[in-house]
Design a protein around this nucleic acid. Structure first.
Lengths: 251, 251
DNA sequence: CGGTCCGTTGAGAGTGATCAACGTTAGTGG
DNA sequence: CCACTAACGTTGATCACTCTCAACGGACCG
């Protein structure tokens, strides 16, 4: 089975050496059980993680015991990157399913930036993509109804799962409780329940245990507050590096 | 007057060559008048901008004519970085005051990544800092009251203005209408007005035209939903590159 | 002097939170 | 295999915060 490098190769074309480099990450993977923390807020930042498989939630604790889940990470994502700018980890990374993660220590990252500029560029652009995603999330958390937030979230998840080839028959299995979804969207679990039911009554989705099937994607995309932006693709690297990219590409 | 490089030097120590490189940006600055767009959503992404002086708002348009202001940029910020990952600009950059911006074309950025790894690292870490800021913003937009959101915003602005040395007598001048603040926080201008008045009645702030003075910072920080995180500082680069940084540092 | 933008204040309406109860599912140990 | 338990999902009633609509005053500008 191919490791999930689709995110790394989204913006840059990796050559043989690059691939060898990232494949080395896979040699030190760790398995973490469901509901265990990978890293807690305040822990020292020893590096980042590459998520090989499973679902991970990244959350921030608020006063009063509330938590805000900032992002659901899927396989192929880099975890803990934002905390590189902090003196101590600023987010709690929690395994929502059994997961396999590969720690990438700071030293290895530094080595990467120096030796493999194309991977570094890919990471830089991926970070910008994450910023765009956060910006959009702010835009619909800030001024959208519960129904709109929920559809935006579901569609985002759908698109990302599709990119990771985890969508089956217009639906997917997920490990999220309604409390999780509430913490993601800034809603209470009770209201998430009502809103999910509303979408089901409208005939847009069908729920069965922890499986969601999308029965009217078109209608859902009409409900959502903003359509997903179009990402740059591989030519972003071309735009950045000009003709350089072509001449150094091994394949 | 020294150009505002405080953000560039936050995570890395720039040597003489690095400084020469970034100072070159200043030679192609453009002046933009108040209320004019620097770049609109959908425009081609020809590069990023370094903000020499003035206030810039970065916003996303939503359906129904609503706009979400995602971030207020101050001098020393890099503008338009997230759009590097997009096929077309994903945010509108609007001058809130008269501003001076220095365009940095994609070609120059590529050159920078290749030739000046320390600046590149600084930009990468700055991007992560922005991600942290966005994550925090999500956390208080998602589940905080209007009062909490407003105080969080005011304090964030205060801290950033202080870093740019623009705070005077615990207060500052700003160009924002209450509509702007509403679009930032996901509130209506009417409610922003009531909430500002509430903070004034409580004795936490004093307003006079477009000037805000903070009369009880301690109380305000108690109201805000989360304290600002502690950033890594210059040793972040050390953490990344190990002893390498010391040996190559010119000063 | 008129016009426009911005700030201020009031009254009423609606969305989502809160509190509470109950049903259902899954996991545990006997 | 069953009893027990805790976590999760569902539904109802009430309440509070914020939106909406509306009117008016002040500041700035042509």
């Amino acid at each position: 089975m191919q490791p999930p490098f689709h995110r790394l190769e989204e913006f840059v074309e990796l050559n043989a050496e690059d691939l060898e480099f990232v494949k080395a990450w896979g040699t030190t993977c760790r398995r973490i059980e469901r509901n265990r923390a990978i890293r807690r807020e305040g822990d020292p930042v020893e590096g980042v993680f590459f998520l090989m498989s499973g679902w991970v939630g990244s959350s921030i604790m608020l006063r009063g015991g509330k938590r805000q889940i900032v992002k659901i990470h899927l396989q192929g994502d880099m975890l803990g990157f934002p905390s590189l700018s902090l003196a101590a980890a600023g987010e709690t990374l929690e395994a929502l399913t059994q997961v396999d993660i590969c720690p990438i220590p700071n030293r290895a990252l530094a080595n990467l930036i120096e030796k493999r500029p194309r991977i570094a560029t890919g990471l830089l652009l991926s970070s910008q993509k994450e910023r765009v995603a956060l910006m959009h999330k702010i835009s619909w958390i800030g001024s959208a109804s519960a129904t709109e937030r929920l559809t935006a979230f579901l569609l985002d998840l759908y698109d990302r799962l599709e990119a990771a080839d985890l969508v089956d028959d217009h639906g997917f299995e997920h490990p999220l409780t309604q409390q999780h979804i509430g913490d993601l969207l800034g809603l209470t679990a009770v209201h998430v329940n009502r809103t999910l039911k509303e979408l089901e009554v409208l005939g847009y989705i069908i729920r069965d245990k922890r499986r969601i099937r999308f029965t009217d994607l078109k209608a859902l995309r009409m409900v959502a507050p903003n359509f997903p932006p179009k990402y740059a693709g591989r030519d972003a690297w071309l735009r950045l590096a000009g003709e350089k990219a072509n001449s150094t590409d091994a394949r």
